[in-house]
């Protein structure tokens, strides 16, 4: 049987107009998943069985059918919660970048016009933005106001991401905080990939450039990547930071596996892992 034999039409000559794609797509998928879909090597066979008037029609039908199948497969593959979290984290990161870039430009503007601001003891960008936002006839009034709103929206988004992370990756969130955990997830791309990673890979996830410069030209290896953002690491003493991040990465990779395979939160594991991490932070 060839795949086009699954089309059920009365007259065996099919042209692009009369073919119902959706049932065909469904039938093809189920047959493919059973492994009962036979091979079609040449369009000749399709023409010989009288299905398509010519090769161009065949190709155009095949194009539509495969598009239908891919869309179906995209819809069904992957965990929606996980994907939502990954994309929200990416949006959050982009928002952060936008805010800091805009801040910088606004500060540049301010300092260009009033260089006396340079002698202030502290940089106060948000003060400047706030001032612009309240003075109604300032040219940057609307932009500054929007920027402040964007910062508010960013906070809302972060709150939502925290909740979502605590649901989807509860163990990792409990260990290193929901935001760091979801950043790790979005960098790795999927829970499955994260769970199949070695803990050493997880330790340097996000430190790509320095890792490759280590492998290629033998500079010092990176001690930490994204997990540096976890308080337990960047607050620990310089001397023990390498050790702490190693232990954190070990525990996180176990947590990632629990999150992927078991999904539920394991309080006993979290308690033990927390103890290990705090023990690693103590000076020897």
């Amino acid at each position: 049987m060839f795949w086009y034999d699954l089309c059920s039409t009365d007259n065996r000559t099919v042209d692009t107009g009369s073919l119902q794609f959706q049932p065909l797509v469904e039938a093809l998928r189920s047959h493919r998943d059973d492994g009962t879909l036979a091979a079609l090597y040449e369009c000749k066979e399709a023409a010989m069985t009288g299905f398509f008037v010519d090769r161009a029609t065949y190709i155009s039908v095949l194009n539509r059918v495969t598009i239908g199948m891919v869309v179906r497969d995209l819809e069904d593959s992957g965990d929606k919660n996980e994907m939502e979290l990954i994309h929200l984290v990416r949006i959050l990161e982009e928002t952060d970048r936008t805010i800091s870039r805009m801040n910088e430009k606004i500060e540049d503007y301010y300092l260009a016009l009033s260089p006396s601001g340079l002698t202030d003891s502290k940089r106060n960008i948000w003060g400047i933005v706030q001032n612009f936002a309240v003075s109604r006839d300032h040219p940057l009034h609307a932009v500054s106001r929007d920027l402040m709103r964007l910062r508010e929206s960013r906070t809302h988004l972060a709150v939502f991401i925290r909740q979502k992370a605590e649901e989807t990756i509860p163990n990792m969130s409990a260990l290193c905080g929901p935001l760091v955990a979801s950043r790790l997830l979005s960098t790795a791309g999927s829970k499955k990939h994260l769970a199949s990673m070695s803990s050493t890979s997880l330790q340097v996830l996000g430190a790509g450039p320095s890792l490759f410069s280590h492998l290629v030209s033998g500079t010092k290896p990176p001690k930490h990547g994204l997990i540096y953002e976890f308080k337990g690491i960047h607050n620990s003493g310089r001397k023990v930071r390498g050790r702490v991040s190693r232990v954190v990465a070990c525990q996180l990779s176990i947590a990632a596996r629990i999150d992927f395979f078991r999904v539920s939160r394991d309080d006993e594991f979290i308690r033990k892992a927390g103890e290990r991490i705090s023990r690693a932070g103590g000076e020897k």
């Binding site: 190709i59 155009s60 095949l62 194009n63 495969t66 598009i67 199948m69 891919v70 497969d73 995209l74």
Partner: peptide
């Protein structure tokens, strides 16, 4: 482009 057959 109808001559592309996408396969996921």
């Amino acid at each position: 482009r109808r001559n592309i057959i996408p396969l996921f």
